[in-house]
Structures are given as structure tokens and as C-alpha cells.
Design a protein around this nucleic acid. Structure first.
Length: 261
DNA sequence: CGACTCCTGACA
DNA sequence: TGTCAGGAGTCG
């Protein structure tokens, strides 16, 4: 499920459910989940009050009242399930936090690449991230500075979290389509005007997704995507067939006619 | 830089 | 049965 809009929506649900609540118990349900959050760390969560939930790119930081932090990441398949503590666990539940008001938040993800890990006070839980994709300060000038000196094509560069924290594979294709930029263009060769358009497009596609209900595996959300997973279909802007290529091992979709180098 | 890796599920 | 998937840390 998770690109930035879905992570943002999930973080809002978690925030509404958990901030101000005290964790009664934390449980893990999979070896990989215990690797990330050993029983010892999980046990220490009991009695901690949740004081805040922050989204950092596609990462989430759950701040606790002793200054420690839980760091969550959905990777490919994670999501928060919020429900009553006595309700059945969702499929693929990996970690569950029982709260003092009888609710339970569970991290569920089929591929088990997602996880929660604990961090002591003062530890820096998050990897080095660039400016957030939705941060208005991440304008064309900032993006251009981040792309300076990069030999790589612009599309894989947009997936580098140090360039765009929260960048993801689907919306990278969508933003480049909207900006009219060929995804194979060397990142550093883009001029200020085009990078400015790209910076605007990145924010625009993410805001569109945030404002619209549903996730991109739902039909309605998929229909909003202009090029992603539309190989062979006519470009909705110019009619030329959408093409698919692979960059850095990830699918890229683009229009060869109206996206220019 | 790209390649590889962690897992499971969906689909051809 | 084989291939692919919305991510990203690690390695060469």
C-alpha cells in the first residue's frame, strides 16, 4: 500500500488513536517482527504514554513520554489497523500495541518487510532524509541543489530519500509525466525552469492523492494515475502509447512523445 | 551507481 | 511453477 499519501493517512489515524494514550502492552507475532522489536524492548513499552506521532518521509516516529521513540516503516505492504483490543487481529499482524482506552493499534503487512523498532532517548532513529516531499520549502531551487552532480537519471534520483523524503515509485512516474520530463534524463542536466516544474509536480501529485479518498489499489485511485501501470494505453495528454522501462530495477512508465529529455 | 536482499501474495 | 510487486539498507 504505502507511498507517501497512504503513509500520511495512516499516520493521521495512528495519531488520532494513540496520542495521549498509555501503552498497556506490546506484542509481536512474527520472527522478523521480533528481530526488529525484541521482547525485552517490547516489554519496556508498557506504561509509556504516546506524546506524538510524526511522519518523516515514509517513516513514522512514535514519540513516548520518556523521550524514547518507536520507529515504524511500512515498506511495501504495511498499514495500521485500529480497533478494539478484544477484536480479532487483522491478517498479517506483526506488532500490536494495546492502549489504556481499550483500543489496539496493529501494524499489519503481508510481506513482513515492515516493522517497528525502539530507540532510546537521544538516539537518531531515522536515516538521513532530505526535505519532505510535501514541504513547501522543497521548491525548485532546493530540488536542483539536491540533484546537482548526479549522473543518474532523474527518475531513480526521485526515489532517493535524501533527495525527496517520501518519494516513491508510482508518484515519481506520475510527477515526471505531469512535468513533461523524460524519466531517463540525467538529473543534473535539467535546467532551473524544468526542475521547478518537477518540484511543483511532485507536490501536486501527492496532494491530489492525499485529497482523494482511497488507496491506489482501489479502482478509483488507480484511475487517477496517468501513466503508472498503463503500458500500451494512449497517453491521456497526447495519445501516444505509454511505455514501460526498468530503471534501477524498478518499473518506470512514461510517454515517449510528450515527456522530453 | 546498480545488484542483491529481506518476505509473502497475486497473477500469468 | 515462475515472475513480479508500491521500499530501502547494504554491498561491490
Amino acid at each position: 500500500m504505502p507511498e507517501l499519501p497512504e503513509v500520511e493517512a495512516a499516520a493521521r489515524r495512528l495519531r488520532a488513536a494513540a496520542v495521549g494514550r498509555v501503552i498497556r502492552a506490546a506484542r509481536t507475532f512474527h520472527d522478523a517482527a521480533r528481530r526488529a522489536l525484541p521482547d525485552r524492548d517490547a516489554a519496556q513499552l508498557a506504561g509509556r504514554r504516546v506524546v506524538g506521532v510524526r511522519r518523516l518521509g515514509k517513516h513514522q516516529a512514535i514519540d513516548l513520554d520518556d523521550g524514547s521513540t518507536l520507529h515504524a516503516h511500512f515498506r511495501m505492504t504495511g498499514d495500521w489497523d485500529v480497533g478494539r483490543d478484544d477484536a480479532p487481529l487483522p491478517p498479517h499482524a506483526r506488532v500490536a500495541l494495546s492502549l489504556d482506552d481499550g483500543t489496539r493499534v496493529a501494524l499489519a503487512g503481508a510481506r513482513v518487510l515492515d516493522g517497528v523498532r525502539g530507540h532510546a532517548p537521544g538516539a537518531a532513529p531515522e536515516p538521513r532524509l532530505g526535505p519532505d516531499a510535501l514541504d513547501p520549502a522543497r521548491d525548485g531551487a532546493a530540488l536542483r541543489a539536491a540533484l546537482r552532480g548526479r549522473r543518474a537519471a532523474v527518475k531513480p534520483a526521485l526515489l532517493d530519500q535524501r533527495v525527496v523524503a517520501g518519494g516513491g515509485n508510482i508518484y515519481a512516474s506520475e510527477a515526471l509525466w505531469r512535468a513533461g520530463i523524460d524519466p531517463r534524463t540525467p538529473a543534473a542536466s535539467l535546467g532551473p525552469a524544468r526542475v521547478g516544474r518537477l518540484a511543483d509536480a511532485v507536490r501536486a501529485v501527492l496532494h491530489d492523492a492525499l485529497d482523494a479518498p482511497g488507496r491506489y489499489q482501489d479502482g478509483e485511485a488507480l484511475e487517477r494515475l496517468r501513466v503508472y501501470d498503463r503500458e500500451g494505453e494512449p497517453c491521456v495528454r497526447c495519445g501516444a502509447p505509454v511505455r514501460r522501462t526498468v530503471q534501477a530495477g524498478r518499473s518506470t512508465y512514461y510517454c515517449a512523445r510528450c515527456q522530453k529529455r
